[in-house]
Design a protein around this nucleic acid. Structure first.
Lengths: 204, 204, 204, 204
DNA sequence: TCATAACCGAGACGGTACGTCGGGTCTTCCG
DNA sequence: CGGAAGACCCGACGTACCGTCTCGGTTATGA
C-alpha cells in the first residue's frame, strides 16, 4: 500500500504521516457514527483538517479510504485460538467476531459491503484485503482439525466455514436477528454434531 | 348513523394500475440489468413512461419501489417442498434459492441490501416483506421435521436455518465464492450430520 | 318563503355562475396579494373551492383567467372626463390611472405584463382586451381636442398619448419612481406647453 | 497590527474567468434568441460547458445572471451626444435607445423586466445597475440644457425624462406599438414644443 | 543557496442525481 | 352532463456529492 518505495526522484516534501492518520481516524469514526446517512468526502476532509486532494492523492475513492481505515482499526487481528480442541477454538473465535460485528467496526463493514455493490472492484478489494486474511486463519485451523481427525475430511472446507461464519455475516448485513454470543453454542453444535436424528443421549 | 362515515372521499381520479405495473417492471428490469451502476429515478420514470412525481406520490424512495418490484416478480414463491424426507426437502429448497440468487432477482436483492444500509427503515422493510415470509416457510418445514423426529429438538431453529441459508446470503452479498447447486450436498451434510469425528463408514 | 334559502346546490346553473365568480375573485385577490411569489393554479382552485378542470374548461391558461379577473374588477371604467378643457380632462384621467395603478389592480397588471413576456399571445390579449379599450377613450378625447383646436393636429396621436401614459406604465412596471398624483401637473405641462425655451412669463 | 488582518484567506482555486465569460455569453445569447420560451438554467450551463453549481455559486438566481450578461453586453454605453443643441442630442439618443431595444438586448431586457416581477429585489437590482446609470446621463444632459436656457427650469426633470423615454419602455414591454426611429421626431416635438394650441406657422 | 519536486489546505470546477414544485390534461364519481 | 377531486405527464428548479483541477504556500532533496 505504501507507495514510497518507487525509485522516483527523491526530491519533494515527504508524505504527512499525521494527516494520513487523521484521515483514517476521521473516515472510521464518521462512518461508524453516521450509519444512517452517508458520510461525504468533504466531511471526512474537514474533520481531518485535510484538503480533499490529499485524499485522492492516496486513495482512488472514498470507499477504499474507508476500507483502509477499517483495516487499520482491526489490525490487532487476534491470532486464531489454538488449543487442542478445535470445536472450542471455533466457538471462541465466533464469539470474537460477534463482538467485532457489534462494535463500531461492524457498522463500517456494513457500510463497505453496501457501497461495494455499485462499485465494481471494491467487493474484490474488500474480500481480498479484509475477508481473505481472516478466512485463511479459520481455514488453517480447520485443516489442522482435519489432520487431527477431529473433523471429517470429506467436506468442502469453504462450505463448512461458511456454515459457521455465514450466520454472522448474514445477521450483520440483514439485521434480521441480533448477533449474540449466546447463540454460539447452538451454532457450533449444529455444525459439529449435525441436526439429524433425535437428541443425543444426555448422559453421553 | 351511516356506517361509511369514516370512508375516504371517493372523489378524484383513480390510481393508474397500468402505470403502476409499468413502473414495477421498469424498476425491476433496469435494476437487474445495470447491476454495476445505479439506476436513476429519472431513468425508471422514462422507461415506464411516467412522471417522476408519480413515483414519489406512491413510494417514499427509489429503494422501496424496487422492493415492491422484487416482491411482485418473486410472488410465485414456490411452496416449500414437502416430502417425507426433510433433509432432501431442504436440499431442494436451497438449490431453488441458489437459482433465484443467480437470476436477475439476485441482482435486485443485492442492490436492495446495499441501498438499505443508508436508508434507515428500509432494512426492516426488506426483512419484513421479503425475508420473513420465506423464512416462515423454512421454519415450518423445520418444525415439522422436529415433530417427525427427523431433527433434534434442542437447538435454536433460527440458528439452524441461518447455518444453511446464511451460506447463500453471504455468498450473494460478499461474492467471495460462487453460488453453485453442487455445493448443496456438502452444505446439507454439514448441517445434518455435522463435521465432528472422522468420516463415516463409507459403506454407511 | 322556503325556509331552506341557504341550502346547497338548488340548481346546477346557479352554482355554475357562483363558481365562476369565486374563481375571478380568488384569482384577483391572490394575485394582487402575493405579488412577490407566484400564485399557482392549484391555490386559486382551492381558494375558490373549485376543481382545476373547471378553470381549464373556461380559460386556456392561468394568465387569461387573471386577465379576466382584472377586467371584471376594473369594469367600472369611469368614462373619460369630458369638459370643455381637454388639458384638465387629461390631468384628471391621468390621476385616476395613477390611483388604479396604486390599487391592487396595479399589482395584477404588473403580474400580467410580466407573465405575458414568456407567453406569446398573452401580450396581444392583454393589449386588445385591457389596454385598447382604455386607449380608445383617450384617443377619442384627444381627437376631440384637436377638432376643438385645443391641440395641434400635426403630431401622431399615439406618440402624444404614450408621452403621457407611458410615464405611468413605465413607473408601474420598472418602479424606478413612485406614482404620485402630484406629478400630474408637471406631466401635463410638459406635454401641453413643451419644455423648450425659458419659463413663460409668470404673469402670462 | 497588520493592516490586512481582515483580508479573506487567499487559499483555494481562483474563480475561473473563462467559465464566467462563457456563462455571460450563453445567458445573453440564449435569452435573446429564445424570447418566447424561457431559458432553463440547465441549458445555460450546458451551453457554457459549466456545472450548474458554478452558476449558483456566483449568482443567487438565473435572473441576476442574465442581468450581469446584459450589463456586460451593453457596456459600450455610448456617451450621451453633446452638441450645442439639446433637442437634437435627445433625438439622437432616443433613436439609439430604440435601436438597442430592437436589438437582442431588447429581448433580454424584456425577459428581465418580466422575471423581476416575481423576484423581490431584482427590480431594484435592475433599476440600480442598468437603468440608473443610463438615466444619469440623460439627466445630466437635461440639466445642462436647463443651464443653457434651452429648457425651462420649472419642471421636474424626472417627469420630463419619463415623458420621452417612458414611451420607449412602454412600447418595449407592452408591445402595443412598434419602436421606430421615425417616431422620434414627433416625440421630441411633443416634449419640446408641447401639443397645446394650433399648429405653428408653417413658415416659422 | 537555491531551483526543483512533491507535498499540503483550501476551495472552485464539470457533472449526475436527487426530491419538489407547478402547469395543463385526463379520469372518476357525485348530484 | 357540470363540477369537485385529484392522479397523471412533463420539465424546471435549487441542492448535494463525487472526483478533478488549480491556487498559494511548505518542506525536502540535489545541482
Amino acid at each position: 500500500m505504501s507507495p514510497g518505495q518507487s525509485e522516483k526522484s527523491a526530491a519533494g516534501r515527504k508524505r504527512d504521516a499525521d494527516a494520513h492518520d487523521r484521515l483514517l481516524s476521521a473516515a472510521f469514526d464518521l462512518t461508524s457514527a453516521r450509519s444512517s446517512t452517508n458520510v461525504s468526502v468533504n466531511e471526512i476532509a474537514r474533520e481531518a483538517r485535510v484538503g480533499k486532494q490529499t485524499i485522492y492523492r492516496w486513495w482512488p475513492s472514498k470507499s477504499e479510504l474507508i476500507l483502509d481505515a477499517l483495516l487499520q482499526r482491526t489490525l490487532e487481528q487476534t491470532p486464531f485460538p489454538h488449543t487442542s480442541d478445535a470445536r472450542s477454538d471455533f466457538a471462541k473465535h465466533l464469539a470474537e467476531i460477534i463482538d467485532m460485528f457489534n462494535s463500531p467496526a461492524g457498522a463500517v463493514i456494513k457500510e463497505l459491503v453496501a457501497g461495494a455493490q455499485n462499485e465494481p472492484g471494491l467487493t474484490e478489494q474488500f474480500v481480498r484485503r479484509f475477508w481473505t486474511p481472516r478466512r485463511s486463519l479459520s481455514r488453517e485451523r480447520l485443516e489442522q482439525a482435519i489432520a487431527d481427525r477431529q473433523v471429517r475430511s470429506d467436506l468442502d472446507p469453504e462450505t463448512v466455514l461458511d456454515a459457521m461464519y455465514g450466520v454472522l455475516w448474514t445477521r450483520l448485513v440483514l439485521g434480521h436477528l441480533p448477533l449474540r454470543r449466546e447463540d454460539v453454542d447452538d451454532l457450533v453444535t449444529v455444525v459439529w454434531k449435525g441436526i439429524g436424528g433425535p437428541e443425543p443421549d444426555p448422559v453421553g
